[in-house]
C-alpha cells in the first residue's frame, strides 16, 4: 500500500514536471505580447516603449533560460509576481482558489445528492418511463452548450422573472445572505451541467450490481426493496461513482471557465485563461501546477478508493473505463 502510494506520487511528480515544462514551452510559442496591444491602443506610447518593457520583463530571452530561472526560484519557494495584477502570485491565486472551491463544493455535493437516489431508482426500474426520463434529463445536461445554457438561465431567472441576481459577485459590502443569493444561479447552472455524468455512472453501476447473482438471491429470499437498494446495491454502486467524482476534480477545478466568465466570478479557470493570454508566466505556471496536481491527486484518490472499497481489486490493475 505504502509502496504503491510512494510510486504513484513519484510518477505524478514526474508528470507534473513534464506538464509544467510543456506548457511553459508552448506559451513561448505563442507569438506577440499584450504589450504590443497596449502600444496599439494608446497614442502616448511608442514602439520603443514596447521594446523596453519586453526587455524589462525578460521576454526577449530564450525560453529555456527563462524556464530554468523560473524553476530554480520556484523550488526555493519564490513564485514571483503576477505581471497582470502586479501582486505576488499567491496573493492573486488564493482568493480565486477560494472562489473556485465556493463554487465547486456545493456543485459536487448537490450533484451527489441528486445523482445517487435517482441513479439507483432508474436502475431498479430500468427501461421504464422513470428510467427514460432520468436518462433524457442526464443526457440533456451533458449535451447542452454551457455558454448558451448559462445565458438562458440568466435570461430566465434574473431578467424575466427577476428572482435572482445575474452575476455571482455581490456588491463589495454584502452580507452572507446576499453572497448566497448571488451564488444560487451559477451553482444551479453548473450542477445541471455536471449531474448528468454522475447520474450515468450511478445508473450503470447500479444496473450492473442488480444483475449480480447475490442480489437476485437476496431478492428471492424476500429482502425488502429499500434494504436491498440501500444495503447491497448502493454500497457496490458507490465505488464507480467515487472514482468518477475524484476524476472530475481536475475538470471542475480549471474547466469552469465559461461559467466563471458569464457569471463574472473570478475563479481558477478564468485566471489561468487570462494569465495564458496575458503572457503572465508566473501566474500561469502556478495555475497549471495547481490544476494538474488536483487532477493527479484525484486520480490517485480514485485508485485508493477503489482499493479500499473493493479489496478484491489489485491496485495495479485498476484503470478507468469499462
Amino acid at each position: 500500500m505504502a509502496a504503491f502510494l510512494a510510486r504513484r506520487l513519484a510518477q505524478s511528480g514526474l508528470i507534473l514536471f513534464i506538464v509544467i515544462f510543456l506548457t511553459y514551452w508552448l506559451m513561448g510559442l505563442m507569438p506577440g505580447d499584450p504589450i504590443d496591444l497596449m502600444v496599439q491602443s494608446n497614442p502616448d506610447l511608442t514602439p520603443a516603449d514596447a521594446a523596453r518593457l519586453k526587455a524589462l520583463y525578460g521576454l526577449d530571452q530564450p525560453i529555456i533560460t527563462r524556464f530554468w530561472n523560473w524553476l530554480t526560484q520556484a523550488l526555493q519557494g519564490d513564485f514571483g509576481y503576477s505581471r497582470l495584477f502586479g501582486q505576488p502570485v499567491w496573493e492573486v491565486l488564493w482568493p480565486r482558489l477560494v472562489n473556485t472551491l465556493i463554487l465547486m463544493l456545493p456543485v459536487v455535493l448537490l450533484s451527489i445528492v441528486i445523482a445517487v437516489p435517482l441513479g439507483l431508482l432508474a436502475a431498479r426500474k430500468a427501461y421504464g418511463w422513470f428510467d427514460y426520463t432520468v436518462n433524457l434529463a442526464s443526457f440533456a445536461g451533458i449535451s447542452v452548450p454551457p455558454f448558451w445554457f448559462a445565458i438562458l438561465m440568466i435570461i430566465g431567472f434574473a431578467v424575466t422573472l427577476n428572482w435572482l441576481p445575474a452575476s455571482a459577485a455581490p456588491p463589495g459590502d454584502a452580507g452572507l445572505m446576499d453572497h448566497l443569493r448571488h451564488l444560487i444561479l451559477p451553482v444551479a447552472t453548473l450542477t445541471i451541467l455536471n449531474v448528468g455524468t454522475y447520474l450515468r455512472f450511478m445508473r450503470a453501476a447500479s444496473l450492473q450490481t442488480l444483475r449480480q447473482d447475490y442480489v437476485r438471491t437476496a431478492l428471492a429470499k424476500g429482502v425488502s426493496e429499500t434494504r436491498l437498494l440501500t444495503h447491497h446495491v448502493l454500497r457496490n454502486a458507490l465505488l464507480p461513482l467515487v472514482t468518477i467524482i475524484a476524476l472530475s476534480f481536475g475538470s471542475l477545478f480549471s474547466g469552469t471557465l465559461i461559467i466563471e466568465t458569464i457569471f463574472a466570478w473570478p475563479g481558477m479557470g478564468k485566471t489561468i485563461y487570462d494569465s495564458v493570454l496575458g503572457n503572465d508566466y508566473n501566474l500561469a505556471m502556478v495555475g497549471f501546477l495547481l490544476a494538474t496536481a488536483t487532477t493527479l491527486l484525484g486520480n490517485i484518490l480514485a485508485d485508493l478508493c477503489y482499493g479500499l472499497l473493493d479489496p478484491r481489486i489489485e491496485l495495479e490493475e485498476v484503470k478507468l473505463g469499462g
Binding site: 508528470i15 508552448l26 474547466g255 471557465l257 495564458v276 497549471f288 487532477t295 486520480n299
Partner: peptide
C-alpha cells in the same frame, strides 16, 4: 495517465494560440 492529468481546457487555450 499523463495525458489524462492535463488540465484540458487551459491546455487547449495554449495550443489554440500557438
Amino acid at each position: 495517465d499523463a495525458v489524462i492529468a492535463l488540465p484540458l481546457l487551459p491546455l487547449l487555450i495554449v495550443l489554440a494560440a500557438v
